[in-house]
Design a protein around this nucleic acid. Structure first.
Lengths: 349, 349
DNA sequence: CTAAGGAACGATAACGATTTCAAAAGAGGA
DNA sequence: TCCTCTTTTGAAATCGTTATCGTTCCTTAG
């Protein structure tokens, strides 16, 4: 008991006894057993992170950012994946709850019904990132998908394009649907007819979509591309079809990626504040664990994106920008704390 | 006690009692408490994974592969990061050991002294991936860095290049040093003078290295590039310096990456069997948890790489390969089970 | 000098499972 | 009928910590 008091500072202990305790601890190489602690206290000074997968740089960067905040607060973390499957997500979250994690940061799985309102989680603090969880108990931290997409499409319209196609992965995915809505709004406000949400899963589908969009009486002269999987496939397709960017078509994407500014032409994108997303979500979680900001419970926080103008949209960085500065960042309207770039997503091994 | 026997099948229970137990379990929504289990049994049917970071696709894919195997064996996983720091690695591993993980799969941190021979880990099964841990207790699963690099350099030599430079991140990194040794060997066997290990951390350093290598009386006509961080910076530099690939210089890299075949020209690389690496390491770990293959303890397993020939080395895929097949894979000498490609490292959110 | 109050520390009982041991119930043989 | 043996079930101890309560000792006030 005295040892416990010394280690936790939960009650006063004489300096002399304290020293004896520390001496014994050193002699015996004693380390408190976190399992027994967790059993007794029903908490563990740890948080769980559930992301759809590890190999998507977006998710990886979110997990990284959350981990940094956890480290700052001296919490340990445990990361697992849902594989975009709500059932697996439930299994993982349930296991974490049984293990008495103090909080849970989740990028909710895209497919299946979310289960965080189940009684298993009544005593667990949960924060969602990137995609919302409905429910008065939860906070969600999101990105301005709609506004970001709208701004991107407006930029293409400003370039003079009239027939702009939208390529996305699936209308079922929250973020991609939001971006499509932004695309539609920009088109309508400019008096243009928005196209369908062209669903491009595989590389073949993407090529077919592009070919179709570029045939007919009024071929598309520009593409808004909803995420990086589609961007990859689209770039491949453009190359195979001998379609030149930005001469034949303008291209603008959502979510910045590692190679976007190495590409020739470099790719104009809407950059999401990924580190900020993870950071804000994590800080929110910890503020709730420490019973602060309780008034925010149930609120959504939405972070602004940046339009990163490079060459693929038709802007000629050689002339319009200083030679030393290949990338122009148009600052978002909403003020927000400065965000460092996504960490370099490349190998160090 | 009877409930425990029913759930674990650790002793015979009458069908009648068993049914009553299940009925009660359903009524009460009972779930066994893994913390109490872990406290009593000193095991948890879970493994820990420690990787340097999440955002490097290589590490992410390793973690993914290990997770798949764990799922198959019905173990849960907990992933954390060391940030390439051996002290943080020790802290994470120690915490996992205290939490009674049954096994630990680690990509050892590059910087600092590895601590897995400390008494804290005497009862934990540990397997290393990608980088070795010395010690008779440990298994390591590695990639043929030397042979892969050698084969790549031999391919460039076959193209007729005589002055070939080696760009790497750091000689302190195990894998990069191994690859440099392979480069040196290939050069020496061909009667050519190997260059220094050119250390390229930042983009500026990389540019300087390239400029230096390409100046003087005998400028480099080819570059072997040790990993993807340097590859990224090098591609940027080549583009800025208006050096054309493969016309001015040939380029070959180590480790395949997402955009390698989208690039123009597509990048020839040595592909590592990443999923296989994770799979083999995980299966080895589980076979040791189940007390099988004990004879393998202390052994290293080394997996072969593939040379993926694209355009940047000077091979003209338009003529030398079928038009439908842009990528030629030269099979490795060593037979090994077929490996699926790295999962697509792009966003689905 | 006594009583009251606080500081320091120890004893006991949880937390929720499993290990070990003991008891009850049923089967079979003398 | 009684005894032994096996099958099934329950009781107690245990894992390593903390919550709770109680005891000792010392200080201070009346």
């Amino acid at each position: 008991m005295t040892v416990s008091r010394v280690l936790n500072g939960s009650a006063p202990v004489t300096k002399e006894t304290r020293d004896r305790v520390y001496q014994a601890i050193n002699q015996l190489n004693y380390q408190p057993n976190p399992v027994a602690r967790s059993l007794r206290q029903a908490r563990s000074r740890s948080i769980g992170i559930i992301v759809p997968n590890f190999y998507d740089p977006f998710f990886a960067t979110c997990a990284h950012a959350i981990g940094l905040v956890a480290k700052k607060h001296q919490y340990s973390v445990s990361v697992t994946t849902s594989d975009e499957d709500a059932r697996a997500e439930f299994a993982e979250a349930n296991l974490m709850a049984l293990n008495h994690v103090d909080g849970l940061a989740v990028i909710p799985a895209a497919f299946g019904r979310s289960c965080f309102d189940r009684p298993e989680f009544h005593s667990t603090h949960i924060v969602a990132l990137d995609r919302p969880i409905r429910g008065h108990r939860f906070n969600s931290v999101l990105v301005e998908n709609r506004e970001g997409a709208k701004e991107a499409v407006e930029h293409i319209i400003w370039h003079g394009h009239k027939k702009i196609s939208h390529l996305g992965l699936s209308e079922k995915l929250y973020t991609l649907n939001e971006r499509y809505q932004g695309y539609k709004k920009a088109m309508q406000q400019a008096g243009l007819t928005p196209g369908q949400h062209l669903t491009c899963g595989t590389e073949e589908e993407t090529r077919a979509c592009i070919q179709q969009a570029m045939s007919g009486p009024t071929p598309s002269t520009a593409f808004f591309i909803g995420n990086n999987l589609v961007m990859r496939n689209a770039l491949h397709a453009f190359s195979k079809l001998n379609i030149r960017i930005p001469d034949d078509v303008a291209v603008i994407g959502f979510d910045d990626f590692e190679m976007a500014d190495i590409f020739n032409p470099s790719i104009t994108v809407v950059r999401q504040p990924i580190l900020e997303l993870g950071r804000v979500a994590a800080e929110l979680l910890f503020s709730r664990l420490e019973e602060r900001n309780v008034s925010l419970v149930g609120q959504q926080i939405v972070l602004a994106c940046e339009l990163v103008i490079r060459q693929s949209c038709g802007c000629n960085s050689q002339t319009s920008l200083k030679a030393s500065q290949k990338t122009l960042i148009r600052k978002p309207a909403v003020q927000r704390p400065p965000d460092k770039h996504r960490p370099l997503v490349t190998s160090t091994y």
